[in-house]
Each structure stands twice: as structure tokens, then as C-alpha cells.
């Protein structure tokens, strides 16, 4: 279930070679041990989301390597990257990115379509996930009708449908109130207990200081400026 992610000298430059070139990530070295919860912290524009997309194979680094269990994945051809996005990484977007017009259940099942899983088995699995996350009763509802918390849980269910080893969530509490944020951290705790590797980006103190978090890596201007273990710090 667990997976180790390493970043070596990763750089990401947007519009490279053009006058409006922008260096979003500037030489980040980071190692995420298998299992556990890591938070990428930092102010807006510090490169948290970009770093998550590089780790989750949604974009390729301009320079450097991203390794998964020691294997370089940054230069893999597109079909292999798609397979990794489908089965190894589950991504929960800041704005959830659910597809409007489809029901909650259909949205959750989407990542499994390319696998050709039998429909009945897939529906059962998606239903069970929604139940577990407390939104089973909304399975048939169109996603436009969901509240923020329900939409987030739907997005988490979608990210988990293919049973990934790494779950990435971008600013997961940005659109939630305190109660819903705490509920989210409970879900994170459950997933951590299953042995999954979780990587969250957040500038919410509630997340950064949560007991479930094993590690906080702080970014500023695309560079890693601090890397700490809150549990060790509190023990001291």
C-alpha cells in the first residue's frame, strides 16, 4: 500500500524562453517516506500547487527528477503517466473539479472507466466509498447540488476509487469551515492508518498543526525553506 516519493533538484519554469517566463519551483529536493502525512505549507504563490502537480504526474518538471519507490517517473511517456495518475496517485483539487451534470456516483466512478471494471462491481465499490465518507445518501444527486463538504468528500471518493497508494490534496480545507475541516482531518487519519502516503498543501494552521501530520515542508518563492517534524518538535 505504501510508496516513497523523492524529488531531486526539481525545477518548473512556465513560459520558458519567453519574456514572461516564471520560475514556479526552483530546485527542490524532498523525500517523502512511505506512509504518513506530509503538509506542504507556504504563502500563496509559493509553489505548493505546482509541486503537487509535479508529484502527481499532472505536469512534468523542467529540470530534475521525481522518483517513485526509487524509479524515475518524470520522464515517462504519457500512457505510463496516465496509468500512474489512475492507479498510484489520487488527486483532490482545491476546487474539487467535479464534472457538472453528472451525479455524485458517476463522478466517483470516472477514474475507473479506462480499466473496464465490471459495472456492478464498480458501482458497489463507489457506493461503499461514499458510505464510508458519509455521503452515500447523495450518490444519485447531481454534483451541482452538493455543499462544500459534500463536494470535497465526493472528490476524495473519486481519488480513492482505484485504491491509490498516494493521496494528494491541494488546499483541502480552503473552502471548509472549522467543523468540516476537522471532519476532513479525521478522514486523513483513517487513510493514514491504512498505510497510504498523504501529501497535502495548506496554509491553514488547523491542518499544519494537526496531530495526524507527520511532517511539514515549508515553501517560499519556489524553494524549500523549512522541513520539520511537528511531533518531534512538540516532544522537545
Amino acid at each position: 500500500m505504501t510508496a516513497r516519493v523523492e524529488l531531486v533538484g526539481v525545477r518548473k519554469i512556465f513560459n520558458e524562453g519567453q519574456p514572461n517566463a516564471f520560475r514556479a519551483i526552483d530546485g527542490v529536493d524532498l523525500s517523502l517516506p512511505a506512509g504518513g502525512v506530509t503538509v506542504l505549507a507556504g504563502p500563496s504563490g509559493s509553489g505548493k500547487t505546482t509541486l503537487l502537480t509535479l508529484i502527481g504526474c499532472l505536469a512534468r518538471p523542467t529540470e530534475g527528477r521525481v522518483r517513485l519507490d526509487g524509479r524515475d517517473i518524470s520522464g515517462l511517456p504519457e500512457p505510463f503517466l496516465a496509468a500512474l495518475r489512475r492507479q498510484t496517485f489520487g488527486f483532490v483539487f482545491q476546487r474539487f473539479n467535479l464534472i457538472r451534470g453528472l451525479t455524485v456516483l458517476e463522478n466517483v466512478m470516472l477514474p475507473a472507466y479506462p480499466l473496464g471494471t465490471p459495472h456492478r462491481a464498480l458501482t458497489r465499490r463507489a457506493g461503499a466509498l461514499l458510505q464510508r465518507l458519509g455521503v452515500g445518501h447523495r450518490a444519485g444527486a447531481p454534483v451541482e447540488s452538493l455543499s462544500g463538504g459534500e463536494a470535497q468528500r465526493t472528490a476524495i471518493a473519486r481519488a480513492l476509487i482505484n485504491d491509490p497508494t498516494v493521496l494528494i490534496a491541494d488546499e483541502p480545507t480552503a473552502n471548509l469551515d472549522t467543523a468540516l475541516s476537522l471532519a476532513f482531518l479525521e478522514i486523513v487519519s483513517g487513510l493514514r492508518a491504512e498505510g497510504r502516503t498523504l501529501l497535502l498543501s495548506s496554509h491553514d494552521p488547523l491542518v499544519r498543526e494537526a496531530s495526524v501530520v507527520d511532517r511539514v515542508a515549508e515553501l517560499r518563492d519556489g524553494r524549500l525553506v523549512a522541513d520539520r517534524d511537528p511531533l518531534a518538535e512538540s516532544a522537545q
Binding site: A82, A83, R85, R86, P114
Partner: peptide, 8 residues
């Protein structure tokens, strides 16, 4: 769709 693992 690509982000959730659909291929080109």
C-alpha cells in the same frame, strides 16, 4: 479526465 487517469 486526464488528471483522474484517462489516457489520450
Amino acid at each position: 479526465l486526464k488528471a483522474v487517469g484517462w489516457e489520450t
